[in-house]
């Protein structure tokens, strides 16, 4: 999986993203966020408040119950503030 972070989630994690193979335990976005939260204290802190965590898969907005696949590009970001 090609994970990308943006805005204060990117700064909080301290990285623009990471590559990983989809763990067995992960089937939905929600599961993936749980898995990523376990990677470090920084991940846990910025991904903890799920209401502020938005996700796009292959560049399309999805909800947290969306199914993820091993070859997905998964972007994780706070609510957008353009315009």
């Amino acid at each position: 999986m090609d994970i990308k972070y943006f805005s204060w989630i990117r700064e909080g994690v301290g990285s623009a993203g990471e590559q990983l193979s989809k763990p067995e335990s992960v089937s939905t976005v929600h599961d993936l966020l749980d898995h990523l939260s376990g990677l470090s204290d920084e991940h846990a802190r910025v991904l903890g408040e799920r209401v502020f965590v938005r996700v796009a898969i292959n560049q399309t907005h999805v909800t947290h119950d969306h199914i993820v696949a091993d070859n997905d590009e998964v972007a994780i970001f706070p609510p957008v503030t353009g315009g």
């Binding site: 943006f6 805005s7 204060w8 907005h61 970001f77 706070p78 957008v80 503030t81 353009g82 315009g83």
Partner: peptide, 26 residues
Amino acid sequence: LMDFLKSKAPFWKKEETSEGANWVDA
């Protein structure tokens, strides 16, 4: 267009003020 752009288009604003830097809240 503006209503959807503001809620859907992936952009994030960071402000640099005399008090410091902060990400704008949605």
